[in-house]
Design a protein around this nucleic acid. Structure first.
Length: 280
DNA sequence: AGATCTACCTGGTTGC
DNA sequence: TGCAACCAGGTAGATC
């Protein structure tokens, strides 16, 4: 499930692999892979304008991967990919055949192929000019980037909030880029119960959570992300951070700090693993 | 407004 | 062996 560190890893890989490249042709294998709406190109416009596009830059915001390209019609067109749960973006060797679940194929000038693949069809690509981004409600509502917040700014976000700590971390309007893995891992490291109401957590502990969150996100980026089942980077390689999980996916196993059996419950509709002794 | 819940989707796993 | 039930989870949309 690509969260901030996984999308960051893919973006860095694509920035490297697609430097100086152009998208010579595009095949919309499954129209569901392209999301159209106010401010975006229609399917017809997408298929007409993208061929020949030159890749300018690849970057990330929240869990969205953005590819800036220049086309014959526009100096800047943005291809925004949201991978949701099972989406992949991979650069394949020339001649690689289109596999099951591939939604969009971009053929590069040198023969390599960029595949957008998504088994569960939750992910999608949106193509739009810069003004289109502001018309995308999800984008317009995104909260701050956790790696760009100061500890004080992070703690301020929680003022006046009454919800569960984990529900807030998962809320993309509250803070961007965090999913189930890094919510559980950061709360464990900070010693905070996922169910704890924000109003009951002291500022000192919120500052601690900021420190732990930044640390776990950076460690995961350094490990090229976490691979649970589907995630691979732009080169098809798995990440390594899943080996460093302290709670995620470890319900019923012993806490690495205190040997207590880790508990499992549902918070914000998500499976949640925590240590009842280490997290208060 | 904020908090909470469910539908969406498909492959893998579990249980009878 | 076969097959139904369940599970994974990011987000939109509905409801309270």
């Amino acid at each position: 499930m690509p969260e901030l560190p996984e999308v960051e890893t893919i973006a860095r890989g694509l920035a490297d692999d697609l430097a100086e490249s152009s998208l010579e042709s595009v095949h919309l294998v499954d129209p569901a892979g392209l999301s159209c709406g106010p401010g975006t190109l229609s399917e017809r416009e997408f298929l007409a304008e993208v061929p020949g596009a030159r890749v300018l830059r690849v970057r990330r915001r929240a869990k969205v991967l953005l590819m800036d390209v220049a086309t014959a019609e526009r100096p800047l067109l943005i291809l925004a990919f949201h991978l949701r749960m099972t989406g992949r973006l991979t650069v394949e060797a020339p001649g690689t055949e289109v596999r099951k679940h591939v939604r969009i194929v971009f053929d590069l000038a040198d023969g390599r192929r960029l595949f957008f693949t998504d088994m569960r069809k939750f992910g999608a690509c949106r193509a739009m000019p810069l003004e289109g981004l502001a018309q995308w409600p999800f984008w317009a509502g995104l909260g701050p980037e956790p790696l760009e917040l100061t500890a004080e700014g992070f703690a301020d976000l929680f003022k006046g909030r009454r919800g569960a700590m984990k529900a807030l971390l998962l809320n993309q309007k509250f803070i961007a880029g965090i999913g189930n893995i890094y919510a559980d891992e950061s709360l464990f490291r900070a010693g905070i119960r996922p169910q704890a109401k924000a109003e009951c957590v002291s500022r000192r502990r919120l500052v601690r959570l900021h420190h732990e969150l930044v640390e776990v996100l950076n460690e995961a980026i350094d490990a090229n992300g976490s691979s649970i089942s589907d995630y691979v980077n732009a080169r098809g390689d798995a990440g390594a951070f899943q080996n460093d999980f302290r709670v995620y996916g470890r319900a019923g196993q012993q806490c690495r700090n205190c040997q207590t059996v880790l508990g499992k419950s549902t918070v914000a509709g998500r499976t949640t693993v925590y240590c009842s002794k280490c997290q208060k």
